[in-house]
């Protein structure tokens, strides 16, 4: 009998740590002992051993092999007292997901653009191979060394496959038409999910619950309108999110490449990072450090390479005015 617990062997895999579980299976950090290679392994119990298809996710990963898609190493089947399990051995991404990343640190507009471009490269490749991921969201985007990789093709499907009425994916990232009778997943529903992911990443939040109290906004495609943009997010970036998340699929980017090209057109002037609500720091392409800060509750201070630029410093009557100004400054000087 196989016991899926850390420390146990399953075939040639030594399970080391339980990484997570979902509706589709459990994921462990493991070592494949023959090659002495670390991997993330997903075990999926077969719902119907007579029509075993739990290995399909691994086949899709193999078909979509790309530097921005988590690599699949091997697929196996394990018989556990009559229950069949598929194991899908994949590349282990120690930095975790984009969702975890946003939880831990501020993601700048420049970093976000790069990560989303990586995701769009991966989707462009998947779509060219006739595959829709159908669950694009920060939790399924893994952070690698200098790049992002898309993971979890557990509910992926062929572009040609009609998935009428299937509300695939995580609701908040789903396009409004997915909630309509006779819904069909498409490249445009995927673009919507990327747009929502982009919106969440540039907004730097993970807790939708506190932002969205009524689920009807999701099914109506009004999530962004309801939640709103943080005031530091520049207009051109908002336009890209709004186009990707347009209620009308025909008005969204029609391909992953089109959306990627729109992001390529945004040239960062200063890559701002928020240190706290009253303090931002950024670097320009000449590596000069720009600092904007509210001091003494009402004074806006601007520095380049730690030298105060008195001409751009200002005093305000209230902290609220100063705070609004600092975000406006970032808004105006990002692109």
């Amino acid at each position: 009998m196989i016991v899926f617990t850390s420390g146990n062997m399953v075939g040639t895999l030594r399970l080391e740590k339980h990484l997570g579980a979902g509706a589709f299976g459990s994921v462990f950090l493991a070592t494949e002992v023959m090659l002495n290679r670390k991997c993330a392994v997903k075990f999926i119990k077969s719902a119907n051993p007579r029509q075993f298809k739990e290995h399909v996710e691994g086949q899709i990963l193999a078909k979509c092999r790309h530097e921005n898609v988590v690599e699949v190493y091997d697929i196996n089947v394990h018989n556990n007292d009559g229950d069949l399990y598929a194991s899908i051995e994949m590349e282990y991404m120690p930095n975790g997901s984009l969702e975890a990343y946003i939880n831990n640190k501020f993601l700048s507009i420049k970093e976000t653009i790069k990560l989303i471009i990586d995701v769009l490269f991966a989707l462009e490749h998947a779509h060219a191979n006739n595959i829709l991921h159908r669950d694009v969201k920060p939790a399924n985007i893994m952070i690698g060394v200098n790049s992002a990789k898309i993971a979890d093709f557990g509910i992926a499907a062929s572009v040609d496959e009609t998935k009428i009425g299937s509300v695939a994916g995580t609701p908040v990232y789903c396009a409004p038409e997915i909630f309509q009778p006779g819904a069909v997943c498409s490249v445009q529903t995927e673009i919507f999910s990327v747009g929502m992911t982009l919106f969440q990443a540039i907004s730097n939040f993970t807790d939708w619950g506190s932002k969205l109290t009524d689920a009807k906004y999701i099914s109506q495609g009004d999530t962004i309108k309801r939640v709103g943009y943080a005031s530091y997010i520049p207009r051109r970036m908002r336009n890209i999110c709004n186009t990707a998340c347009n209620k009308d699929p025909a008005k969204r980017y029609q391909t992953a490449r089109k959306m990627r090209q729109a992001l390529e057109d945004l040239h960062i002037n200063i890559d701002w990072h928020r240190l706290d609500d009253l303090h931002w720091e950024g670097f320009d392409e000449k590596k000069r450090k720009h600092t904007v800060q509210i001091c003494n509750n009402d004074e806006f201070i601007y520095k380049i390479n730690d030298r105060k630029k008195s001409g751009e410093c200002k005093k305000f009557n209230t902290l609220a005015e100063a705070r609004a100004y600092i975000e406006k400054y970032v808004y105006d000087n990002t692109f």
Binding site: K114, H125, A128, R257, Q261, D265, H267
Partner: peptide, 27 residues
Amino acid sequence: LVKIDPKLEFTELMDRYKRDFIELIDH
């Protein structure tokens, strides 16, 4: 016409060329 952000750092720029070429060739 394929756009590439001209402000990318050199290593990023080279990587972007590579990935764009791969997509163009594969498609």
